[in-house]
Computed example of a mutant assay.
Amino acid sequence: MKYRKLGRSGLKVSEIGLGSWLTYGTAVEKQTAVDCIKIAYDQGVNFFDTANAYNKGASEVVVGEALRNYPRESYVLATKVFFPMGDGPNDKGLSRKHIIEQCNASLARMGVEYIDLYQCHRYDVDTPLDETLRALDDLVSQGKVLYTGVSEWTAAQITDAAHTAKQLGLRPLISNQPIYNMLVRYIEKEVLPTCEKEGLGQVVFSPLAQGILSGKYKAGQSVPEGSRASNQAINRWISSYLKEDVLRSVGKLEDLAAGLGIKLSQLAIAWVLRQPGVSSAIAGASRPSQVEENVKACEVLLTPDVQQEIDSILEEINGFVPIW
Rank of each mutant, 00 (worst) to 15 (best):
161 A>P: 06
123 Y>M: 08
241 Y>L: 02
240 S>Q: 10
74 S>E: 07
9 S>L: 01
184 V>W: 04
92 K>H: 14
96 R>N: 04
93 G>H: 02
110 M>R: 01
259 G>E: 05
193 P>N: 06
272 V>T: 08
186 Y>N: 12
53 A>V: 11
277 G>C: 08
38 K>S: 12
113 E>V: 00
192 L>Y: 07
286 S>H: 08
17 G>D: 06
271 W>Y: 11
319 G>N: 05
291 V>D: 02
259 G>I: 04
271 W>R: 10
176 N>Y: 04
134 R>L: 14
292 E>R: 13
153 W>S: 12
171 R>Y: 12
233 A>Y: 14
157 Q>M: 14
249 S>W: 09
288 P>A: 07
27 A>T: 14
10 G>F: 02
297 A>V: 10
214 S>T: 13
197 K>Q: 09
200 L>H: 07
121 H>R: 05
116 D>P: 00
47 F>Q: 03
165 A>H: 01
118 Y>C: 09
2 K>G: 06
276 P>H: 09
64 G>Y: 05
34 V>S: 10
217 Y>N: 04
110 M>W: 11
232 Q>M: 15
323 I>Q: 14
176 N>H: 07
288 P>M: 08
313 I>K: 07
128 P>F: 08
119 Q>I: 13
62 V>G: 10
71 P>R: 03
11 L>N: 02
68 R>P: 00
254 E>F: 14
246 V>C: 09
303 T>Y: 11
163 H>W: 15
60 E>T: 04
172 P>V: 01
88 G>M: 09
215 G>C: 09
284 G>H: 00
248 R>M: 10
229 A>T: 14
324 W>C: 13
201 G>T: 02
282 I>S: 11
111 G>T: 07
115 I>F: 15
23 T>S: 06
83 F>E: 14
169 G>M: 04
272 V>D: 10
241 Y>G: 03
265 S>N: 04
219 A>W: 05
310 I>W: 09
16 I>Y: 00
111 G>Y: 09
261 G>L: 12
150 V>Q: 13
277 G>F: 10
190 E>K: 01
255 D>M: 14
296 K>H: 12
215 G>S: 08
291 V>N: 02
170 L>H: 13
267 L>Y: 04
40 A>I: 04
191 V>K: 02
213 L>Q: 02
112 V>Q: 00
265 S>F: 09
6 L>I: 04
181 N>S: 06
152 E>W: 07
283 A>R: 08
176 N>M: 12
210 Q>L: 06
146 L>A: 15
148 T>N: 06
255 D>G: 13
5 K>Q: 12
92 K>G: 07
14 S>W: 05
197 K>F: 11
205 F>L: 07
77 L>I: 01
120 C>D: 06
